[in-house]
Design a protein around this nucleic acid. Structure first.
Lengths: 150, 150
DNA sequence: CTAGTTGCAAACATTTTGCCACTAG
DNA sequence: CTAGTGGCAAAATGTTTGCAACTAG
């Protein structure tokens, strides 16, 4: 059963998200809660590898690698999480979608990742530079050396 | 023999680049010329897959897959080409480095890729948004539907 | 009960490595 | 001649698939 469309309003918490999924016929499972918990508590976007690594640290529950990948794809399709591509690594990363729009800066030294907000006005100016394309989306990420690494 | 540092000045042509490499102890080989030729003539950044596909179309010369990857890495290290990451695909793409700084817009429909220039002023404003990081670099790519696809 | 979910093994796609042979200069 | 380069097979990495078994509601 795949209900038509989804609209996760901004700033939903973990409980709301799970509730919303349940109403739409999906289940609340351990893996689902595990991944969402991890992403909600992480200070930065997590990769499948990160998640696999964190398995078993909090409770003795050991989901399979396949489950992690499948669940991440599912949550992305539901627009609950979003994919982040960083040039400094080949793995994808994911973060909770329902946050204010932001970008990231990655330290080339220690791989630290911080959020960067550039403001609505600048965002609009940037998008305004592209002509003849509709449904325009964009990715903007920064790479540099943080204070402690240089 | 790996000479210390390189500075490819802007707007070098293929001959200059090869000359520069030769002076620094590297060789002018068929694979090297093949890849650079392809990248110079392409209308968009090329992936290893694209290059492998174009093998044998112009001359009967059949470099190995490994060679393509190795050469791309070499040329990138020499700052002759640069890597482009597009969210719509998992392969890396490469383009000649010595062009004016620009970004890309990718059509989600037909995968067409066009260059986007946003101007020095805006570039500076964007970089100015990141504090406490040095040697700051950034990637900015757009994704949307082109006129013919929507 | 039953559709959604999981585990396992195996397949896949992309990229890298080791090692030896080859070649541009 | 010799360091730089290339070919081949195999490994490594990250992700997906097929299928049968399991489970939340």
């Amino acid at each position: 059963m795949q209900p038509s469309c989804i609209s996760i309003s901004n700033n939903m918490n973990l409980k709301d998200i799970l509730e919303n999924l349940k109403e739409r016929g999906f289940r609340i499972t351990k893996s689902r809660k595990f991944i969402l918990n991890q992403l909600f508590n992480a200070q930065k976007p997590l990769s499948p590898f990160d998640l696999l690594n964190n398995i078993g640290k909090e409770e003795n529950f050991y989901p399979n690698k396949t489950t992690i990948y499948r669940e991440l794809n599912f949550l992305e399709k539901q627009k609950i999480i979003k994919e982040i591509h960083l040039e400094t690594e080949k793995e994808k990363r994911y973060e909770i979608e329902n946050e204010t729009h932001h970008h990231h800066v990655v330290c080339r030294g220690c791989d630290k990742i911080e959020d960067v907000e550039i403001g609505n006005e600048l965002e609009k100016k940037i998008l305004g530079k592209v002509k003849n394309f509709a449904s325009l989306d964009h990715s903007l990420e920064f790479y540099g050396m943080c204070n402690s690494c240089r």
